[in-house]
Amino acid sequence: MALNTPQITPTKKITVRAIGEELPRGDYQRCPQCDMLFSLPEINSHQSAYCPRCQAKIRDGRDWSLTRLAAMAFTMLLLMPFAWGEPLLHIWLLGIRIDANVMQGIWQMTKQGDAITGSMVFFCVIGAPLILVTSIAYLWFGNRLGMNLRPVLLMLERLKEWVMLDIYLVGIGVASIKVQDYAHIQAGVGLFSFVALVILTTVTLSHLNVEELWERFYPQRPATRRDEKLRVCLGCHFTGYPDQRGRCPRCHIPLRLRRRHSLQKCWAALLASIVLLLPANLLPISIIYLNGGRQEDTILSGIMSLASSNIAVAGIVFIASILVPFTKVIVMFTLLLSIHFKCQQGLRTRILLLRMVTWIGRWSMLDLFVISLTMSLINRDQILAFTMGPAAFYFGAAVILTILAVEWLDSRLLWDAHESGNARFDD
């Protein structure tokens, strides 16, 4: 018995066209964080690309023209004298008006014999932002004059995390709450300039795509075929072959399989920071003279006294001054041990922890910024005066060393310790 099946006739004509040209192939790229070699397709503007294995951002879609970056830099340069030299806060102490600005706080630190601690604050609040705007201006002028731009481009990517104007702005709020127990506070004209400078700096850093600047100024022929001998440069993120001198053909720094002496430098910085954190938390970090009496505060006791007036601000200072430094030390110690013992479990967790400490590390400088600003506000000789204690130097040095330890660690070593050939990683 035959089955009668109805015929289905399409209502619209289906047209099949042959592909007349070869589909576009992607360029081969190595991930600078996990060293995976993959094919990167062509990316349009405002599109980002991520590593298929570790999800690290390979290409950032946010990109401004150099002219727009230069305009932002010149605007920031105009704001800087007002943000640093004009009063941020006014207080009335014992019937006398006192003005506080950024430069005055750094000068008070240096004047009291601790120039190293003052230079830490100076670099993060004044030096690094000033280098940022002058570097962008150098790129703008240098591109037109045919100057060598490689050193500036190499420095810009590392400079971003040292620009800490946003953290200093939080420190202004913390210092205001600490001082309000002794005097009446009012915002100064410099505060508005400083807030504007923070906003412009944040926007500029978020749109400063150094890798795209490398592509514009020093374009290189990408690798179009897969080759395990391809290496990625950690300076400019170019994937290719080393030249005859073993250097990256684009930025001219040595092109090595792994960062040289990464573990040794990381261990040295980490152990030194552990040693410095002990006096930083045991010795007094601030000293207040009130009517001839002397009151010393460690980091913890200062947080407890701050909690009596504002528990939320005390929580912020606790996280930045105690929780973050010790968390960074514990995480980095764990990561280094996992590399030495070739741990194969929990790779995803370790990668996330490394990215976390990379982002939060700079916030530990908050305590030094609060001390710097408070020193310029309260300084009335023996009637009422505020000065920093010996722990300030140890704390600042420990924070900087932990930042350097994270920067010096080559994250690809975590993958080397893991089993080879993993296309995915999980716990």
Rank of each mutant, 00 (worst) to 15 (best):
A175C: 11
D416R: 11
S411A: 07
I287D: 03
K328M: 00
V163S: 08
Y182F: 11
F82D: 05
M155V: 03
E296V: 05
L156A: 06
L336G: 11
V195Q: 05
S411H: 08
A115G: 03
S301E: 07
M72K: 04
G26H: 12
V406Y: 11
P6T: 08
R25L: 11
V210D: 12
N310H: 02
L93V: 03
F341W: 11
L300S: 03
M109E: 07
W363I: 02
P87R: 12
R258A: 04
M72N: 08
L208C: 13
V189H: 13
D114G: 05
T387H: 04
S273H: 03
Q104N: 06
F194P: 01
V357I: 09
M155S: 06
P6M: 06
P10D: 14
L200M: 11
L257Y: 15
L278F: 12
A397D: 04
G190T: 04
A71Q: 02
L37Y: 12
L139I: 09
L94F: 11
T298H: 10
V357H: 04
W84P: 06
A83Q: 04
E228M: 09
L366H: 01
S372F: 06
A196H: 11
M1L: 02
D227W: 10
C236Y: 01
G315F: 10
R380I: 03
F395R: 00
A417H: 10
D181M: 03
C266Q: 01
F318D: 01
A307F: 11
A307Q: 14
P390V: 06
F326Q: 06
F74C: 12
R97G: 06
L409R: 03
I91W: 02
C266E: 02
L323R: 00
M375L: 10
L277K: 08
V133Q: 03
V170T: 15
V357K: 07
A314H: 04
I322C: 15
M304P: 05
M36V: 14
H90T: 11
G346D: 09
V125Y: 13
R221S: 08
H184E: 15
E228G: 10
P151Q: 01
T5A: 10
A115Q: 07
I371T: 01
G188D: 07
I299N: 07
A83G: 14
D99Y: 08
N4T: 09
M164C: 04
L377A: 12
F369V: 02
V198D: 06
I167F: 04
I177T: 05
L277F: 00
A71L: 07
S45A: 10
I339Y: 11
N281Y: 04
A49T: 05
R225P: 05
V163E: 10
I177V: 07
E212W: 12
L368C: 10
F194W: 05
I303A: 10
L373N: 03
S206Q: 15
C233P: 00
A423F: 06
P390Y: 05
A312W: 14
R231Q: 08
R97S: 11
K57Y: 09
C124E: 04
A398K: 04
G142V: 06
I58H: 11
A18H: 09
Q345T: 12
Q29D: 08
F393Q: 14
S39V: 15
Q264V: 02
I299A: 08
E86V: 06
H90P: 03
Q382Y: 12
A137D: 02
R68N: 04
F318L: 14
L263H: 06
L337Y: 15
I285C: 04
L414Q: 06
R348A: 12
I274H: 11
K111L: 03
L153M: 12
L347Y: 12
I287H: 05
M120A: 03
G302A: 06
R62Y: 08
Q220M: 05
I311L: 09
G315K: 04
V125R: 00
F192C: 09
M1F: 00
G127E: 05
M109S: 12
T117G: 03
T204G: 06
D410F: 00
